[in-house]
Design a protein around this nucleic acid. Structure first.
Lengths: 201, 201
DNA sequence: TTGTTTAATCCGACTGTTCGGTATGTTTGT
DNA sequence: ACAAACATACCGAACAGTCGGATTAAACAA
């Protein structure tokens, strides 16, 4: 079985991550995925549709993960588990990229996210919910860690949750500007480690 | 005097902030600024050039400001001054926007920044330096605040500096996703206030 | 197995439109 | 009169999308 549609989808994801929706041409999608225009339009009705499917199939899943599966009994294991997910995601994308293209993967999660926010209005609500859930999950773990005595701090749980979440996004932003996303993991780790150190009793 | 060139530049900035370089057409630039193609090409040689000038004239100045002019004798006054700058920048852009367009200003600093990073290679180095300077400025103020006894913390100055800087960028990211940039200021204030509270002796 | 039909998959030349940019003019201020 | 400032009709290239047909695979019959 030759999952042609899947091939086109995967290639499109990588191209959109590189350059954004408008900058990627049909010619590129078709050529990079190794098919023809006819093949493409056999599986998709338009360029916009392949973008939609890319977001649904890959991107939404990449951003969203179930916090219930993460260890919530301790803040330390929770944030370490988050770090691992961050690292795995990057590894998978990188290996996919190297199957299709050459050179380093200029992973720009935000570029494709911005496009999705503009082109697909339902994404905005979806993202709002995602962020709420993420903050709530952190808040819950932090509240728990405070009652068990794992940590002790002047911060409110909500506030500390924001510090963990926002700092990682801020670092991601900076990494995009100066490239080198491999440093992202280490930088986030450093900040989260020290945040954790500062609230240990 | 009819600063036509300035008018075109300002309108272009607002359009690029809305939609990014590729998505803005010459037709839009020309129509929104109230001129004709002839007028545009009298002042600029290409679409790329007006983008370059927009970055040089407006955007670089918006991102870069001289930290020497900010009060550095106390961390508190330093971060409050930073907040003020944040607020002013937003106000100016909003009032400009309302002179030319209708509705709310979908300010997306990062969209235009990403485009600049791709289209103008020299911007990357410029940004790297900017970030270094920003972190250094915070670090210096924090070091000073530690010696004067204003604050007392387990964090290293560099680390605390990163927390201030990264958190604001992370918040900005989140605000773009869920719009409402007017909340940005309050959110950054909340985090910075509590960060400051946590390191007070 | 072999031949035949039918559907799925794939191809690439072609189309209408939009794009950034140009050529050639007209107006305006000095 | 003569630049500088603007307007507009127009151009070729690039774009997303279409179409008739070629190729392959699946289904069925002999």
């Amino acid at each position: 079985m030759k999952d042609s549609k899947g091939q086109i989808l995967k290639t499109s994801l990588l191209l959109f991550l590189q350059k954004g929706f408008k900058e990627v041409t049909m010619k590129e999608i078709v050529k990079s995925s190794g098919f023809s225009k006819g093949a493409f339009y056999h599986y998709f009705s338009s360029k916009e549709e392949v973008f939609k499917e890319v977001i649904d199939v890959y991107f939404s899943q990449m951003l969203h993960f179930d916090y219930n599966t993460l260890p919530s009994n301790s803040l330390q294991s929770f944030y370490k588990a988050n770090l691992e997910i961050l690292q795995n995601r990057d590894m998978i994308l990188n290996s996919w990229y190297k199957e299709t293209f050459e050179g380093d993967f200029p992973n720009n999660m935000y570029y494709i996210l911005f496009d999705a926010l503009r082109l697909l209005p339902e994404i905005k609500e979806q993202q709002t919910n995602r962020i709420q859930e993420e903050l709530k999950a952190w808040e819950k773990v932090i509240t728990n860690a405070m009652t068990t005595g794992e940590i002790k701090t002047r911060f409110s749980p909500k506030n500390l949750a924001k510090q963990f979440v926002y700092s990682s996004d801020g670092i991601a932003m900076h990494m995009i500007m100066i490239s080198s996303s491999d440093k992202l993991f280490n930088e986030v780790k450093e900040i989260w480690d020290s945040l954790y150190e500062s609230v240990k009793p």
